[in-house]
């Protein structure tokens, strides 16, 4: 939670560490910035914190997140932060819309094996961790 000068909630990030073996990773469940505090890199600061915790505290291989395929603003933002579209998950959002699974490799994945994009889309029930 990022608290503003008047103790306002400026934004928050919610995540977890999960997976097994080389799939041990940090997952961004949600990242939100309040309308009053947009356009000042707050999302990036929050993502940096999550990446640092995934890297230093949990020693993860990568960080991943899901985003609506239609949300081009968010996709471009994550791309700017170094995330690539790893794969597509069809019908992830209540069957209405596909998701992109976006990933960014951390130091532990020196060979960057976790971020080689998959060509084939997968279905939500085939996800490893949910």
């Amino acid at each position: 939670m990022a608290e503003g000068p008047g103790k306002q909630a400026m934004g928050y990030i919610l995540g977890k560490a999960e997976g097994e073996g080389e799939l041990w990773h940090g997952h961004v469940t949600a990242v939100t910035v309040g309308p009053d505090f947009r356009r000042q890199s707050l999302a990036q600061k929050l993502m940096d914190i999550l990446e640092e915790i995934s890297d230093k505290v949990h020693n993860c291989y990568f960080v991943d997140l899901f985003v609506r395929k239609s949300n081009s603003v968010a996709i471009n933002m994550y791309a700017k932060f170094g995330y690539i579209v790893y794969r597509t998950v069809t019908g992830y959002y209540s069957g209405d819309e596909d998701a992109y699974d976006m990933r960014k490799a951390l130091r532990r994945d020196a060979a960057r094996k976790s971020v080689v994009p998959l060509k084939k889309a997968i279905r939500p029930e085939d996800l490893e961790w949910e």
Binding site: G4, P5, G6, Q8, M10, P35, D36, F37, R38, R39, Q40
Partner: peptide
Amino acid sequence: DLVSCAVDLRT
């Protein structure tokens, strides 16, 4: 020019 400026300065 930041949206938060007025909120920041309110108090």
